[in-house]
Nucleic acid binder design. Sequence first.
DNA 1: CGCGAGTACGTACCACCAGTATGTCGCGGT
DNA 2: ACCGCGACATACTGGTGGTACGTACTCGCG
Lengths: 238, 238
Amino acid sequence: MPKPAKSVGKLVPKVPKVPRVGVPGVGGRRAAFSASTKRDLVDVAERLFTENGYAGTSLDSIVAGAEVTKGALYHHFSGKQALFEAVFERVERDAAERIQAALGAHADPWEKSLAGLRAFLDVVQEPGYRRVVIQEGPAVLGYERYRELEERSTFANVLDIVQSVLDAGTWRLDEEMKQIFARIFFGALATAGETVSISSEPEAAAQRVEAAIGFMLSGFQVLVENGADLPNSLADRP
Amino acid sequence: MPKPAKSVGKLVPKVPKVPRVGVPGVGGRRAAFSASTKRDLVDVAERLFTENGYAGTSLDSIVAGAEVTKGALYHHFSGKQALFEAVFERVERDAAERIQAALGAHADPWEKSLAGLRAFLDVVQEPGYRRVVIQEGPAVLGYERYRELEERSTFANVLDIVQSVLDAGTWRLDEEMKQIFARIFFGALATAGETVSISSEPEAAAQRVEAAIGFMLSGFQVLVENGADLPNSLADRP
DNA sequence: CGCGAGTACGTACCACCAGTATGTCGCGGT
DNA sequence: ACCGCGACATACTGGTGGTACGTACTCGCG
């Protein structure tokens, strides 16, 4: 049975639609419109993903919010996941920049780590960062892709801090070991941030977290300043 | 336009189907069959969720694997999420029991924490635990529900360990503070476990992680044994 | 200035999938 | 013996991600 040639029936396009952003200056207004469409999509997607999560956000609602159609979305992104990835990268980049800014001034590694901690605790309370990066990032992107993206943004900052702290000691650690330390700290900070943002009084919780991590840093500092050996295994503990 | 009463057409049921588990002993074979069906569903769901993730697993594939139909699934569970939750709880419970077992023997808090660390690093390399609990748990269940379930299983063990370590010091901490420390450690261990299981040589990575955490524990220990003050804020660092 | 081509979308359609409504069978209590 | 209810099975629906294809507008080139 041949498909009845299903009458495609007069594809009447939408009303031409007013261009979506001004400044039609030379150098391709076409391209400018396109970029603005893409940005709008990411904007709306970020909002909706943050509010309702990945699975709870339909592409229809996104394109409706951006006042375009799925055709536009699939022209700019290969699919829902790719759109999420774009949102993820932007949220990440913003966070990394904020942390970077907070770091810049300090030379002393301990003060630097303290400033970094505070900046991170701030960032991690942003709903967008919490939802998109911490909560859904690993599940949606898969762990490998997640780490790949994280590698060169926020995690890079944590690694930087950890390195400067570790290098304050007399011994030197190989790259692998620094990575491990940074990973551990990153995980600790992420859940600490979650704890803070979940808490009924975030202010007090943030104080406690700072105290706890500060305490751990103190332990670190004591060992570093005393030039303690880094054990190869827990077995060397007296 | 009245719906044409769409001929429901002879609901012919499946072949009676041989009962799914033996031991028809007294006390309700009916209930036994039912329980075994439920268990089969959770078994298959655990396998598929672990392999393909939550979104990548269709209910059809689950019921097909369990050799039942969606009717059975929706009779036992209120939906896909509830089924995932059942899987989650089982994976969690198994993990908690394993850790519990590893803990039991030791009295010294430092040895206890060491044993707990090793057990946790073992558990966290299980694909099921990684995928269901660590990776997808927070995203699928939502963070509050996730913590609610976690509260009384694996996390309870971590809390127990942390408490015994912290109580070894001269000072006492309030519950809140212990919770914070436990959270931080839990997060650190989780990402450490991820690092290990992602690594190309998990053995070596596990060694490094043990060394790193052992080092941090040493710092803790030094502070505890010297009766260091727990700062109320990082500001009191000299 | 005309025009061909390609970009930037819009429209219609499909496959799939979670969830629902409704049916039936047989165990188990009476 | 019987019948109520638990334990499923079946058919169907709405919604959703993805695709195939069509069109208008712009930009560069002759």
